[in-house]
Nucleic acid binder design. Structure first.
Length: 558
RNA sequence: GCCGCUAUCGUCUAACGGUUAGGACAUAGGAUUCUCAAUCCUACAAUCGGGGUUCGAUUCCCCGUAGCGGUACCA
């Protein structure tokens, strides 16, 4: 242990240029004037040039929780690792989240604009702040300079492993922990780089209790690691920046992934030594996926899983609202029931509850997500489907975008098929799928397709007869009931049965059912054995095109 | 290895210590004045294992097992 005088001397030796004190900094960040229960929360991602779906989840939870308490949400960019720095990292995050309507009250709005009084909100712009606190820590004997090299660190680890003790820089293994002023002076004079480490006074055998807002009460061991606070490039580590920034910015609860849970003892020690009031934590579980043929769970990974990157959803045109709804379901599983019961309420009306978060990690289930997306798109009007499909296509499918733009009314009619009444069609999961709806209605797409073969159901000459006779009786203005009656009559006259039970009973009396007659028309008009409601398809297509296609098919059946 | 957290159908989850352990997604059947989708009905399917405490345990406690996380001058 050093005397107070010695500690001050070392601090001066290490940071001769730092004139400000911790108090000076603290004064620049006045306490926020908050009402009771108002929350100030932050989402603090690293700009890696990649927006993880888990980041959308965290930020969503953060922004929503803050808003429902009439509080403040903050975006803070944690760019303290120069090795991982990426040029457009900030805009990937800001723009990506904006796409989900996730916007913060404070923080970067773009790569070069920040709003809020508690900034800067980009950690690389706050290095002077961390330096002041580092100096303060050293001068109080809570931290010290460490000149150890990577090689030496490796050797210590080897030795620890050989002895079978915990690895790490702590206690008697912390070589520079109690170095003399002279030794430090010598290294500084030689211009050796140094890191600032915590002078930990914790005891690994002591436990303490903390309450996590999701996990509840937990018993943890005290920290005894002399963790690095300031790296030799004078950037802070996460551990050091976290208590400082969250305190200065007036955060009321730290929301973060559970990968941080193991660091809580360190953070508690740091809050104490920095003289800060401890902020409460909520650690939520990370999004997982099944691997090894469903045998093990693992984190959704950027490298292995395309669906970890939000870009995947954007490129395929998954509706953002659907993704948000799915993520809210993962956060509070009662959200889904609420949504079903209150389809017309704004999502803001739903209250996220901390006690409803699950303690274990949830598997990311893309099937369920698609179900929600499907449900969401089914709830839209044809105009909305049109607009959203166009927005997507403009970026990712120029050909479809052109079709949509040039034929607005026609396309809205197409999207309107089976979109009213009680039988709402639910086959669009993502806006990329809307192109599939168009293929029947545009000759340029239609002509590229092949006819599906139904000869095993109806012979060529009969198909020809059905189509030819139908051309004569087809009236484009007739309603659904008349339309179907006509098909039944046509079938009857050709020996097809219009009663299903009758057909089942006396199969050999008939050539088939009305369904087969309709199928012939369906293939003639759409080329496929599966299509949306044929009556509506024909109405939208118009008499001219319908007849044209029927004639073409009749010729083919010669 | 060590430290910590977690554990209900395949998945997300519900159940003041008392329920035939519920719902949703998925899957499989069936129904429908046209196919597919949708819709409706039905089926399938779970309290990780072992000990306690208790009249009674999915729920509380202990042990084990498994999964996840941490064990960096990455976040």
């Amino acid at each position: 242990m050093k005397t107070p005088e010695e500690s001050k001397k070392i601090a001066e030796l290490l940071f001769p240029d730092v004139k400000e004190t911790a108090d000076d900094i603290l004064k620049k960040y006045p306490k926020r004037n908050l009402k009771e229960n108002q929350m100030v929360l932050r989402f603090a991602p690293s700009p890696t040039g990649f927006l993880h779906i888990g980041g959308v989840y965290s930020s969503l939870v953060c922004v929503k929780l803050a808003r429902q308490s009439s509080g403040i949400s903050i975006l803070r960019i944690e760019d303290t690792d120069k090795k991982r720095e990426v040029a457009n990292g900030i805009s990937v995050i800001v723009d990506g989240l904006k796409g989900f309507d996730i916007e913060f009250n404070e923080g970067p709005k773009s790569a070069d604009e920040q709003i809020g009084e508690y900034g800067p909100y980009i950690q690389s712009q706050r290095l002077d702040v961390y330096k002041v606190f580092a100096k303060e820590m050293v001068s109080k004997g809570h931290a010290y300079p460490c000149f150890i090299t990577e090689d030496e660190l490796g050797k210590i680890r080897e030795e620890q492993e050989k002895e079978g003790v915990r690895t790490g820089y702590y206690g008697k293994w912390a070589k520079w922990r109690d170095a003399s002023i002279d030794d430090i002076q010598k290294e500084v004079d030689e211009g050796k780089p140094f890191a600032i480490r915590l002078y930990s006074t914790g005891n690994i055998d002591n436990t303490f209790e903390m309450t996590d807002m999701i996990k509840g009460r937990a018993t943890l061991r005290e920290n005894d690691m002399d963790a690095v606070l300031l790296k030799s490039d004078s950037f802070p580590t996460y551990h050091f920046a976290h208590p400082i920034d969250d305190t200065l910015m007036g955060i009321t609860m730290v929301t973060r992934g559970e990968e941080w849970f193991a660091s809580v003892p360190l953070h508690y020690e740091l809050f104490k030594k920095l003289g800060f009031e401890q902020i409460s934590y909520m650690h939520f579980s990370t999004l997982m996926k099944l691997d090894n043929e469903g045998k093990t769970k693992r984190k959704l990974s950027k490298r292995k899983d395309p669906e970890a990157d939000v870009q995947y959803y954007i490129e395929n045109g998954y509706p953002n609202e659907g993704i948000v709804q799915y993520l809210l379901t993962l956060a509070n599983s009662n959200f889904y029931d609420w949504r079903v019961q209150n389809p017309n309420l704004d999502i803001d009306e739903f209250q996220l509850k901390l006690e409803k978060f699950n303690k274990a990690g949830a598997l990311f289930d893309i099937v369920k997500l698609e179900d929600i997306c499907k449900e969401y798109i089914a709830s839209l009007s044809a105009e909305q489907v049109y607009e959203k499909s166009l927005d997507w296509a403009k970026k990712y499918d120029k050909q479809t975008a052109k079709l949509l733009e040039l034929n607005k009314d026609y396309c809205i009619n197409i999207f309107n098929i089976e979109r009213s009444g009680s039988k709402i069609r639910k086959d669009i999961v993502k806006f990329k799928d809307s192109k599939l709806q168009l293929r029947i209605f545009f000759d340029e797409l239609f002509n590229e397709e092949e006819y599906e073969d139904i000869l095993n159901r109806v012979d060529r000459d009969i198909q020809k007869e059905i189509v030819e006779r139908y051309i004569n009786i087809y009236n484009s203005g007739e309603d659904n009931v008349v339309w179907f009656e006509n098909i039944k009559k046509l079938g009857d006259s050709l020996g097809f049965c219009s009663d299903r039970k009758e057909y089942e009973a006396k199969r050999d009396k008939y050539k088939g059912t009305v369904g087969d007659v309709a199928m012939v028309l369906r293939v003639a008009i759409t080329k496929k054995t599966q299509s949306p409601d044929l009556y509506q398809v024909m109405s939208v297509l118009g008499k001219e095109k319908v007849v044209q296609r029927l004639e073409k098919y009749a010729q083919k059946m010669v």
